[in-house]
Amino acid sequence: MHFFALSLATLIIIALAAYAISLHLKLHKRQKEIQKTEQDVAKQITEKQLSARKDIGFLALAYINEQVELAEVSLRISKLAQYLELDEQQQTHYQVFNEVASTIANIPTHKQWKQLSKKDKAAHQRTFKQLEELHTDNAKISAQQIVDLKQRQ
Protein backbone atom coordinates (compact mmCIF):
# COMPACT_ATOMS: atom_id res chain seq x y z
CA MET A 1 0.00 0.00 0.00
CA HIS A 2 2.86 2.31 0.86
CA PHE A 3 4.37 1.60 -2.57
CA PHE A 4 1.07 2.40 -4.27
CA ALA A 5 0.76 5.76 -2.49
CA LEU A 6 4.35 6.61 -3.36
CA SER A 7 3.78 5.65 -7.00
CA LEU A 8 0.59 7.70 -7.14
CA ALA A 9 2.34 10.72 -5.61
CA THR A 10 5.17 10.36 -8.12
CA LEU A 11 2.69 10.21 -11.02
CA ILE A 12 0.88 13.29 -9.73
CA ILE A 13 4.18 15.18 -9.41
CA ILE A 14 5.21 14.12 -12.94
CA ALA A 15 1.81 15.16 -14.31
CA LEU A 16 1.99 18.53 -12.55
CA ALA A 17 5.55 19.06 -13.76
CA ALA A 18 4.50 18.24 -17.33
CA TYR A 19 1.57 20.65 -17.02
CA ALA A 20 3.87 23.35 -15.61
CA ILE A 21 6.30 22.86 -18.50
CA SER A 22 3.40 23.01 -20.96
CA LEU A 23 2.18 26.30 -19.44
CA HIS A 24 5.71 27.69 -19.43
CA LEU A 25 6.13 26.87 -23.14
CA LYS A 26 2.75 28.46 -23.97
CA LEU A 27 3.70 31.56 -22.00
CA HIS A 28 7.07 31.77 -23.73
CA LYS A 29 5.39 31.41 -27.16
CA ARG A 30 2.84 34.09 -26.27
CA GLN A 31 5.55 36.48 -25.08
CA LYS A 32 7.38 36.02 -28.39
CA GLU A 33 4.16 36.72 -30.31
CA ILE A 34 3.59 39.88 -28.27
CA GLN A 35 7.18 40.99 -28.81
CA LYS A 36 6.87 40.45 -32.58
CA THR A 37 3.58 42.35 -32.66
CA GLU A 38 5.15 45.25 -30.75
CA GLN A 39 8.07 45.28 -33.19
CA ASP A 40 5.69 45.23 -36.16
CA VAL A 41 3.66 48.11 -34.71
CA ALA A 42 6.83 50.10 -34.00
CA LYS A 43 7.97 49.50 -37.57
CA GLN A 44 4.61 50.63 -38.95
CA ILE A 45 4.71 53.77 -36.81
CA THR A 46 8.23 54.54 -37.99
CA GLU A 47 7.23 54.01 -41.62
CA LYS A 48 4.15 56.21 -41.15
CA GLN A 49 6.29 58.93 -39.57
CA LEU A 50 8.83 58.79 -42.39
CA SER A 51 6.05 58.96 -44.97
CA ALA A 52 4.42 61.88 -43.13
CA ARG A 53 7.75 63.76 -42.95
CA LYS A 54 8.31 63.21 -46.67
CA ASP A 55 4.78 64.34 -47.54
CA ILE A 56 5.02 67.38 -45.26
CA GLY A 57 8.30 68.37 -46.89
CA PHE A 58 6.74 68.02 -50.33
CA LEU A 59 3.72 70.11 -49.29
CA ALA A 60 5.88 72.79 -47.68
CA LEU A 61 7.96 73.05 -50.85
CA ALA A 62 4.81 73.22 -52.98
CA TYR A 63 3.55 76.06 -50.77
CA ILE A 64 6.84 77.95 -51.03
CA ASN A 65 6.62 77.58 -54.83
CA GLU A 66 3.00 78.84 -54.71
CA GLN A 67 1.63 75.59 -56.12
CA VAL A 68 -0.87 75.21 -53.29
CA GLU A 69 -2.84 77.71 -51.21
CA LEU A 70 -2.39 78.30 -47.50
CA ALA A 71 -5.76 76.82 -46.53
CA GLU A 72 -5.17 73.51 -48.29
CA VAL A 73 -1.56 73.13 -47.22
CA SER A 74 -2.51 73.97 -43.64
CA LEU A 75 -5.18 71.28 -43.49
CA ARG A 76 -2.85 68.67 -44.95
CA ILE A 77 0.28 69.56 -42.96
CA SER A 78 -1.68 69.86 -39.72
CA LYS A 79 -3.19 66.39 -40.22
CA LEU A 80 0.11 64.76 -41.21
CA ALA A 81 1.98 66.39 -38.33
CA GLN A 82 -0.23 64.45 -35.92
CA TYR A 83 1.76 61.33 -36.85
CA LEU A 84 5.07 62.91 -35.86
CA GLU A 85 6.73 63.02 -32.49
CA LEU A 86 7.77 66.66 -32.34
CA ASP A 87 9.73 68.45 -29.67
CA GLU A 88 8.78 72.00 -28.69
CA GLN A 89 11.19 73.57 -31.19
CA GLN A 90 9.81 71.51 -34.07
CA GLN A 91 6.21 72.23 -33.05
CA THR A 92 6.79 75.93 -33.62
CA HIS A 93 7.34 75.20 -37.34
CA TYR A 94 3.81 73.78 -37.53
CA GLN A 95 2.02 76.33 -35.36
CA VAL A 96 0.84 78.62 -38.16
CA PHE A 97 -0.49 75.67 -40.17
CA ASN A 98 -2.32 74.34 -37.11
CA GLU A 99 -3.86 77.76 -36.45
CA VAL A 100 -5.10 78.14 -40.02
CA ALA A 101 -6.36 74.54 -40.09
CA SER A 102 -8.30 75.00 -36.87
CA THR A 103 -9.82 78.24 -38.18
CA ILE A 104 -11.14 76.58 -41.35
CA ALA A 105 -11.86 73.12 -39.95
CA ASN A 106 -15.62 73.67 -40.06
CA ILE A 107 -15.67 74.90 -43.68
CA PRO A 108 -17.14 72.28 -46.01
CA THR A 109 -14.89 70.59 -48.54
CA HIS A 110 -15.30 68.54 -51.70
CA LYS A 111 -18.91 67.54 -52.30
CA GLN A 112 -20.28 69.75 -49.54
CA TRP A 113 -18.39 72.76 -50.99
CA LYS A 114 -20.05 72.23 -54.35
CA GLN A 115 -23.46 72.26 -52.65
CA LEU A 116 -22.89 75.65 -50.97
CA SER A 117 -24.64 78.74 -52.26
CA LYS A 118 -22.60 81.41 -54.03
CA LYS A 119 -23.09 83.65 -51.01
CA ASP A 120 -21.70 81.03 -48.60
CA LYS A 121 -18.78 80.25 -50.91
CA ALA A 122 -17.96 83.96 -51.16
CA ALA A 123 -18.00 84.29 -47.37
CA HIS A 124 -15.62 81.39 -46.98
CA GLN A 125 -13.38 82.70 -49.73
CA ARG A 126 -13.16 86.02 -47.87
CA THR A 127 -12.05 84.04 -44.80
CA PHE A 128 -9.38 82.30 -46.92
CA LYS A 129 -8.19 85.65 -48.25
CA GLN A 130 -8.01 87.14 -44.75
CA LEU A 131 -6.04 84.14 -43.52
CA GLU A 132 -3.65 84.45 -46.47
CA GLU A 133 -3.09 88.13 -45.70
CA LEU A 134 -2.62 87.48 -42.00
CA HIS A 135 -0.45 84.36 -42.10
CA THR A 136 1.41 84.22 -45.44
CA ASP A 137 4.72 85.61 -44.14
CA ASN A 138 4.85 83.29 -41.13
CA ALA A 139 3.65 80.34 -43.19
CA LYS A 140 6.39 80.87 -45.79
CA ILE A 141 9.02 81.06 -43.04
CA SER A 142 7.66 77.94 -41.36
CA ALA A 143 7.45 76.08 -44.66
CA GLN A 144 11.08 76.94 -45.38
CA GLN A 145 12.10 75.76 -41.91
CA ILE A 146 10.30 72.47 -42.51
CA VAL A 147 12.05 72.02 -45.85
CA ASP A 148 15.43 72.88 -44.29
CA LEU A 149 14.83 70.48 -41.42
CA LYS A 150 13.85 67.70 -43.82
CA GLN A 151 17.02 68.22 -45.85
CA ARG A 152 19.18 67.90 -42.71
CA GLN A 153 17.61 64.58 -41.78
Rank of each mutant, 00 (worst) to 15 (best):
T103I: 06
K29N: 07
H93N: 05
H110V: 08
Q67V: 00
N65D: 14
R76W: 13
V96F: 01
E99T: 11
L6F: 10
E85N: 14
F4D: 03
T37A: 14
L16C: 10
D40L: 15
N106F: 15
L116F: 12
F4W: 02
A105W: 03
Q95H: 03
A123P: 00
K54F: 15
R126E: 12
E85I: 05
A52W: 06
R152F: 08
L86C: 00
A5Q: 09
E85K: 12
Q44T: 07
E38K: 15
I34A: 07
S74E: 13
V41W: 09
L70A: 05
Q82Y: 09
K121A: 04
K118E: 15
A62G: 09
L11A: 13
N138H: 01
H24I: 11
T92W: 00
F97M: 03
A122W: 00
V100M: 06
A139N: 05
A60H: 09
L59D: 01
E85H: 11
I64W: 03
I64T: 07
T46P: 00
T92L: 09
A52P: 01
A71V: 03
K118M: 14
A17R: 11
W113M: 08
K43A: 14
A143S: 11
A139W: 08
I146S: 08
I107H: 03
L80D: 02
D137R: 11
H28F: 04
G57S: 12
T92V: 09
V73H: 00
I104W: 04
Q39H: 05
D40Y: 13
L134W: 07
Y19S: 12
Q115D: 06
Q95Y: 00
V147A: 05
A20V: 08
I56Y: 06
A81M: 02
A9F: 04
Q89S: 14
N65V: 08
V68C: 01
T103H: 09
E132T: 07
K36G: 04
L8I: 00
S78V: 00
I107L: 03
I14S: 10
Y63H: 05
K43S: 15
T136Y: 09
F3K: 15
L84Q: 15
L6Y: 05
T103W: 04
S142P: 04
Q130L: 12
A15S: 10
E133Y: 10
T92M: 05
K43M: 14
F3S: 13
L86A: 02
A62P: 05
K114W: 01
S102T: 08
L86M: 01
H28R: 11
R30L: 14
L84H: 12
L6S: 12
I12E: 03
V41P: 13
M1V: 09
H93P: 01
K150L: 10
E85W: 02
A42F: 00
V41S: 10
S74R: 15
K36S: 06
V100Y: 08
K36T: 10
L149R: 14
K140S: 12
Q151S: 15
N106W: 12
H135V: 01
R152P: 04
Y83W: 11
F97A: 02
A18Q: 02
